[in-house]
């Protein structure tokens, strides 16, 4: 499997089935992250965005079956043997988890957490690993003293920095950040996001940033994927997409984002619930909640088509073109 050298992550047609689900949880995801690129993956809870990012490390739920290709630096993750998979997880791709307090074993010292995978895979001697850990802690703004401390002695923000340092330990080409700021307070959030962006630049890694926070996605990313019910609804450059959304779901998400500029009035929540995994879907997954549904929406699955005059954007909506102005208006208006 070969892909262009500059593509760090190339996910093609990823489908994921879970036992007991009537439809695939991920129904054909195409997603790329280039070298040094920041890509945001946005969606509601249950849209499959975490599952998508976790599948890059083949962290799949029990009983899951997959189709498609997840190439990380040209090698298909889904076809790796145990040894290659460990190498991928230690050196090529690393994940930053949502709640550092839950993600780090409270009974082991921070130094052990940082160095263990490099030491246990016999890639580095204890001393070299400890040295690298100290350097990575320095890079995230923490002192060497932290190495000997237990997670319980650190604040949530400091622990998330430890988490980021640990992701950098193996000098990865790709960092997957799964809502890395959700469990932190607002000031710490800004610090962590700034730090991530800074480190991505400095260490030349690609970053896949999974979030439900559209504002954050717009601020940090080059490109955005909006996910709904296991499919990509729309993708494109962050700024263009949020200024002129072409999918009714993106527009609805933007409308339901609280804004400081217009604090008066009620938040526009999207009516209805995302489709349950127990029901099969025909047609557009968003049809049941969409304000612009026509018969074709419930009958035919909309393909991903390039937006006219914006070839870097793809949208999966039957009425994307005719609704363009209306959607842009509504997203900006409220």
């Amino acid at each position: 499997m070969t892909t262009p050298a500059e593509t760090t992550l190339d996910m093609r047609g990823l489908r994921l089935h879970l036992p007991g689900a009537a439809r695939p949880v991920l129904a054909g995801i195409d997603l790329t992250v280039a070298e040094r690129e920041t890509v945001a993956l946005v969606g509601e809870s249950g849209s499959g965005k975490s599952l998508t990012s976790r599948s890059v490390l083949r962290l799949l739920p029990p009983g899951a079956t997959t189709e498609g290709v997840i190439a990380v630096q040209g090698e298909d993750v889904l076809a790796m043997n145990a040894k290659r998979l460990r190498h991928l997880r230690t050196h090529t791709a690393a994940m930053i988890f949502q709640d550092p307090r839950a993600a780090i074993n409270p009974l082991r010292r921070v130094g052990d957490f940082l160095t263990e995978s490099l030491r246990l895979n016999a890639d580095l001697s204890d001393d070299t690993a400890a040295e690298r850990a100290a350097r990575m802690l320095d890079a995230v703004g923490l002192g060497e003293r932290v190495l000997g401390q237990y997670p319980g002695q650190l604040s949530g923000g400091m622990l998330q920095r430890v988490m980021i340092a640990s992701a950098l330990m193996g000098d990865p080409a790709l960092i997957l950040a799964d809502e890395p700021t959700t469990a932190l307070d607002v000031t710490t959030q800004a610090e962590v996001v700034g730090l991530l962006d800074d480190l991505r630049e400095r260490f030349g890694t690609g970053l896949l940033f999974v979030t439900h926070d559209l504002g954050l996605a717009a601020a940090i990313s080059d490109r955005v994927y909006v996910m709904y019910a296991g499919r990509i609804a729309e993708t494109g450059p962050a700024q263009a997409m949020f200024e002129r959304p072409r999918h009714p779901y993106t527009a609805a998400l933007l409308r339901s984002t609280p804004r400081l500029a217009t604090p008066q009035g009620r938040l526009a929540a999207i009516k209805g619930q995302p489709p349950s995994l127990r029901e099969e879907l025909t047609g557009c997954p968003f049809a049941a909640r969409c304000a612009f549904t026509t018969p074709v929406c419930t009958e035919e699955l909309p393909p991903h088509v390039p937006v006219r005059s914006e070839p870097t954007r793809l949208v999966a909506c039957h009425h994307s073109d005719e609704l363009a102005d209306q959607l842009a208006e509504s997203a900006l208006h409220d």
């Binding site: 490390l57 991928l88 997880r89 230690t90 690393a94 074993n105 263990e116 895979n121």
Partner: peptide, 9 residues
């Protein structure tokens, strides 16, 4: 899970 995701055998 996190330990596994980090390549710990």
């Amino acid at each position: 899970t996190v330990a596994r995701s980090r390549g710990v055998p």
